[in-house]
């Protein structure tokens, strides 16, 4: 079977029902774009989670003289004895890698550095109002709950603050956006699959004369199916290409608009985006070829 012949037959098929081909192309492109966005968010969330969870510390705030929380009002400021007991307890836990003490003076200094753009806030805060704390670095960031529950409520402990609880809400939102995109992508792909099947069926019908003759003169099944499979593959590939440019566009938009505002975030690199694009193209081509293949089996009787 010569390639030029397959391609000319395929081209005739694509041109003959150009509206259906376009319909398939758009559906496939939309579905694959959603899949791409879903994968994009998924990869982004993963890289952000890795980034943040590696930095996760459990912060154990200690009661100072001026601390207003209810636990501190009962127990009063932490005594040096309680403090050293707490420290050795944290250090003895197997999940803990390192315990670092931040005094009230150091905490105040850091507070001033962090909020130097809001002078009013800094002027109204005095040393001693920012509590001292133990910053606990964990060996395994997912084990934060063990540490939290061990020291929560102990005398002299004001609150136990764990980064993950705050980040968790943020990640939950991103994850549901991702799930939504993937779900829509699933429906879109299903629609694309059916549409491709239907288009190939139409193509098979409009070329039944040709395929009939091909069968009669003894063309191999492969030769008969190939133009249809190629038609499917080309449409799938074009759909994938459109979706890929959408994903590249998204990446460029993120870099341009969002990245400057969140410099500390870990953003997705071009490498991962290229990988997503490869996935989209492969899924597009395979899916449509698969759909074509099964439709041809049914309608071409080969």
């Amino acid at each position: 079977m010569r390639l030029s012949f397959i391609f000319s037959e395929m081209w005739i098929g694509l041109r003959r029902n150009v509206t259906m081909t376009l319909g398939v192309l758009v559906t496939t492109a939309v579905a694959l774009t959603l899949l791409g966005v879903g994968l994009f968010i998924w990869a982004q969330v993963n890289s952000m989670q890795d980034f943040w969870y590696n930095k996760v510390e459990v912060t154990v705030y200690l009661c100072g003289k001026q601390t207003q929380t209810s636990t501190c009002q009962q127990s009063g400021a932490i005594t040096p004895q309680q403090q050293s007991q707490l420290k050795s307890q944290l250090e003895s836990m197997p999940q803990v890698q390192h315990v670092y003490y931040e005094s009230e003076a150091q905490a105040y200094q850091r507070f001033r550095d962090q909020f130097k753009t809001s002078p009013v806030l800094v002027e109204n805060t005095r040393e001693g109002e920012v509590p001292a704390s133990f910053r606990v670095k964990l060996k395994d960031p997912t084990k934060y709950a063990v540490v939290t529950s061990a020291v929560q409520g102990r005398p002299g402990v004001s609150t136990v603050y764990d980064f993950r609880a705050v980040l968790g809400k943020f990640f939950n939102i991103l994850n549901s956006v991702r799930n939504g995109a993937l779900l829509l992508a699933g429906f879109g792909l299903l629609a694309a699959l059916l549409l491709i099947g239907n288009t190939i069926r139409l193509a098979a019908f409009s070329r039944r004369r040709e395929t009939g003759i091909m069968r009669l003169v003894g063309a191999s099944n492969f030769a008969i199916q190939m133009p249809f499979l190629m038609e499917g593959a080309i449409t799938g590939f074009l759909g994938g290409a459109v979706a890929s440019s959408a994903v590249y566009g998204l990446k460029a938009l993120v870099d341009w608009k969002i990245r400057p505002a969140f410099l500390t975030f870990a953003f997705l690199g071009w490498g991962s985006v290229h990988l997503i694009v490869v996935v989209l193209l492969v899924v597009g081509v395979l899916l449509s070829m698969l759909s074509s293949f099964f439709t041809i089996r049914r309608y071409l009787h080969v």
Binding site: M1, R2, F5, R209, E210, G212, I213, M214, R215, L216, V217, G218, A219, A223, I224
Partner: peptide, 30 residues
């Protein structure tokens, strides 16, 4: 089927191909 040729009452030619192309089609698909 490559060893059997077939002719029908209704000719079964491809209307958008000329005579040469119609005959060549049988060889091209092989």
């Amino acid at each position: 089927r490559r060893q059997i040729g077939c002719v029908f009452q209704d000719f079964r030619l491809l209307p958008n191909k000329n005579v040469r192309e119609n005959v060549a089609f049988a060889l091209e698909v092989l």
